[in-house]
């Protein structure tokens, strides 16, 4: 039997954070949702057993790039899925892509796209 996968969701927009949390939970994922990089760091320090980190790219003063770097510094094995309302041409997106996240999705995207991306990222962790 497949073990329940745990996902850390980092998103400062409440509507997105709550809805994605809901969608993923309904699909049987164990979701921890935070709204900033600092809290994400605390969670990762306390529990490094997450199967996936999903992070927004631009959150107030912080960026998903910081979260991505933090994950890779603490535990290289956790894949990171980037989601962004930015354009693929924006410098921040390009910088994030250099760090080779396991995937990316441009907002707004449907539940189907989300679940597919999540499944793709988790495949490597089984």
């Amino acid at each position: 039997m497949m073990t329940t996968k745990s996902i850390l969701l980092v998103e400062d927009e409440e509507s997105i954070r709550l809805s994605i949390d809901y969608q993923l939970s309904k699909e049987g994922y164990d979701v921890d949702a935070v709204d900033n990089g600092e809290d994400a760091n605390k969670k990762l320090v306390m529990d490094s057993s997450y199967d996936l980190v999903i992070t927004d790219l631009r959150m107030g003063d912080e960026s998903g790039v910081d979260v991505l770097q933090m994950v890779q510094e603490t535990n290289v094995n956790i894949p990171v899925l980037i989601m962004s309302g930015l354009d693929y041409r924006s410098p921040l997106f390009k910088k994030a892509m250099e760090l080779k996240p396991c995937g990316h999705a441009f907002k707004p995207f449907s539940k189907e796209v989300l679940l597919e991306k999540v499944r793709n990222c988790l495949e490597g962790t089984d």
Partner: peptide, 21 residues
């Protein structure tokens, strides 16, 4: 539009998800 597209996409994404749910 380049500057505001990010600001639009975020709430739009949330809204879409909520409608979906």
């Amino acid at each position: 539009t380049g500057a505001i597209s990010h600001e639009f996409n975020n709430p739009l994404h949330g809204l879409r998800n909520i409608l979906d749910i």
